[in-house]
Design a protein around this nucleic acid. Structure first.
Lengths: 179, 179
DNA sequence: GATTGCCACGGAATTTAATACGGCCATTAT
DNA sequence: ATAATGGCCGTATTAAATTCCGTGGCAATC
């Protein structure tokens, strides 16, 4: 481990750019991180040690933050998904509001630009539990209003994808942006 | 593998309920799915084969949907996160709209109850790419309007958590719900 | 209330995969 | 041109996953 840290410090402080093979590796591991390095190497056209080396580098560089099992929300009694928009007095992010991050129902907390301040993604067992969570939010100092969007059905839900998309040309009827 | 399938068919069609040890196992594996069964067993108080057996059962039952690496969005050039609300004529979910699920920028597609129809979670390289995605959405037949919430900063973002929360009592000033 | 079957766990053995090492080749910088 | 660097492959070693079997608790049954 020591000489690995040295390697980082010596030549690749922020790690070099992700190339096409790296993207394919990430694509495989996002779908299934349990594949062996032998199979991973086969899929991307590398030997097992080479594939291993690249994955190790992707982990070191931070491109791969970690590995996690994907849990079925229904299996842990959290079938109800909802997005909650919160308006706050001043600029949110108070300790009281951050305290909700301790609750396992809260999966995401963002601050957003637009006609709201904060955006939460939460999963609860039922509407009663969601009501309890919203009640807590209402009682939080600084919160002026909330809006909830209860998810009826989910058609797509997946981790961050490594894929790239073709750039979109400016439509003909629009002038090109300066930048 | 054959006798495993038989086992499923024979006695545990939908698998038995998740118990406390299962929840602790899921809690460990959500944080880091690369731990060995030896360490996993240590953490939850089981022998390595017993831990392995339970994880295998959690996979068979579907509680564990899979294992994925967590990718840093910035590493794959998608630093810009946004939530897009779409209003549609009729009840959305047209083939044209579902086609956007093919784009790697789109991470989630939900239909929601509330004053909107569909909700998308998208990650793009920059505002130009987001503009291109929104342009595509505008041109999709049936889409009447969209609202976008660009995320300024994210304070929490994690997979589905196995943890349970204490039930919330009905506040004193509210009458108890019938159900 | 005793008994019988049934899971779940633990320990040992085996097989498989992860990891480390050395050499080769291509690319790059001097 | 040449030396150095980084990335890859083949092999060897080590560690972990997986299997096998015996034991014990638990529950349903008679």
């Amino acid at each position: 481990m020591d000489e690995e840290t040295d390697t980082i410090r010596r030549n690749t402080p922020a790690a070099r750019d992700i190339d096409e093979i790296d993207r394919r590796i990430l694509g495989v591991l996002v779908d299934d991180a349990t594949v062996s390095y032998a199979e991973l190497g086969d899929r991307v056209g590398l030997s097992p040690p080479a594939a291993h080396e690249r994955v190790k580098r992707l982990r070191r560089s931070g491109a791969i933050r970690g590995t996690a099992v994907i849990i079925d929300p229904k299996a842990v009694k959290k079938p109800l998904l909802a997005f909650v928009h919160i308006d706050t007095r001043g600029w949110g992010k108070t300790p009281e509001l951050m305290a909700v991050s301790q609750y396992p129902e809260v999966e995401e907390i963002h601050t957003v630009a637009g006609d709201t301040c904060m955006l939460l993604k939460v999963r609860t067992e039922d509407t009663r539990a969601l009501e309890g969570l919203l009640a807590r939010l209402y009682e939080t100092p600084g919160v002026t209003s909330t809006r909830s969007y209860v998810v009826l059905s989910t058609y797509l839900e997946r981790p961050v994808q490594p894929g790239v998309t073709e750039k979109w040309p400016t439509p003909n009827h629009m002038s090109k942006p300066l930048y």
